[in-house]
Amino acid sequence: MHVSGHTPDIIFYNILLDGLRKSQHLDQAIALFKQIVNQGIRPDTSTYTILIDGLCEGKRLSDAQQIFQLLLGNGYPLNVQAYTAMIKGLCKEGLYDEAKALLYKMKENGCLPDAITFETLIIPLLEKGENDEAKNLVDKLFSKMVDDAVNLFKEMRHKSLTPNTIIYSSLIDGLFKSGRISDVQDVIYEMHVSGHTPDIIFYSILLDGLCKSQHLDQAIALFKQIVNQGIGPDTYTYTILIDGLCKGNRLSDAQQIFQLLLVNGYPLNVQAYNAMIKGLCTERLYDEAKALLYKMKENGCVPNAITFETLIIPLLENGENDEAKNLIDKVFIKVS
């Protein structure tokens, strides 16, 4: 080629480099890469991805790391494939902490991970039983990259690696936040088919999503289902529902749920009372709100600063200064 006067371009070198990689002539591949750089030919994303992937596949991790750091140091725009190849190489050697650090470095450098990147890390973490760490990574993916998250979920199922309840919960949360309600139904169905039993954390996330997306009838039905199944809702669960119903102008439904909980002896906390008081004040039902405040105190639940703000400020704005002062004297001063 040189004799005929043709000058090889980067496409030619990439093909040659890929051939050396596949035939495991890795020393020659490294030498060729250095030759490319020394000749002033700028490697493209394919060039260094081929080399890094080949070195990692060939168990030459230290060489791959040297090349990777050289590229980073010289300002080459490493793409998602190059980062993923390096992360995969680290995971193969069991170097998960280094792999996670590189994932965060990747995001810092403005390169967004894709489903393959996360699959490379999450699946080994789940297999090792590091569920909390897997969930942390999943949350970071789902918060901004829902399509990739769904693809990852499907890939896990395809590989017969069943997602646990933590992963299902994170996926549901991400889908709700991105408005993908129809996909939520598919995930719930898939969860039941795979034999997973939802826990109260999962149900609380689902309930929160339904309330925030204004699917309030479904939220009420879900809450009743939780109770009928004998799963005891926690304070977070019923506070979500009461707050959601009040914000959705479904005050009578909120009151029914609230009374049902009171009658059945559920330990309503200050957040649940505050949500109900706020709902009553929004409808300007100040007498009912004040009555609930006294009831709250009778039941041994101490009002806090938010309770004060929720009820006292509307009374002052309504010109009911004496009533506001009376409440402050009777309730708030005595509990402070």
Rank of each mutant, 00 (worst) to 15 (best):
Gly40Tyr: 04
Gly300Tyr: 10
Ile52Val: 15
Lys278Ala: 11
Tyr203Phe: 15
Asp114Ser: 12
Thr235Lys: 01
Lys224Phe: 03
Lys88Trp: 03
Thr239Met: 10
Lys297Gln: 04
Ala272Glu: 07
Asp173Gly: 02
Gly19Ala: 11
Lys88Arg: 13
Gly174Leu: 04
Val138Trp: 15
Asp132Trp: 05
Ala272Val: 12
Phe12Glu: 09
Asp132Gln: 14
Ile306Met: 08
Leu20Thr: 05
Ala305Gln: 13
Ser4Pro: 00
Leu251Gly: 06
Leu245Gln: 03
Leu175Val: 10
Leu245His: 07
Glu317Asp: 15
Asn228Ile: 05
Ile41Asp: 06
His215Pro: 01
Lys100Arg: 13
His6Met: 05
Pro314Tyr: 11
Cys211Leu: 14
Ser336Gln: 15
Asn299Cys: 02
Gln259Arg: 14
Leu327Pro: 01
Ala99Leu: 02
Gln66Val: 08
Ala85Gln: 07
Tyr266Ser: 13
Lys154Tyr: 11
Phe202Asp: 03
Thr84Lys: 09
Asp18Trp: 01
Pro267Leu: 04
Ser62Arg: 09
Ala85Trp: 07
Leu137Val: 12
Phe33Gln: 02
Tyr83Cys: 01
Lys212His: 14
Ser4Asn: 11
Lys154Phe: 07
Tyr48Lys: 11
Leu16Arg: 10
Leu327Asn: 08
Ser46Asn: 15
Ile257His: 11
Glu283Phe: 13
Gly73His: 01
Ser169Val: 11
Ile36Ser: 05
Gly319Pro: 07
Gly300Cys: 01
His2Pro: 00
Ser204Met: 03
Gly94Trp: 02
Gly19Thr: 11
Ser62Ala: 08
Leu260Asp: 14
Glu133Thr: 12
Phe332Arg: 05
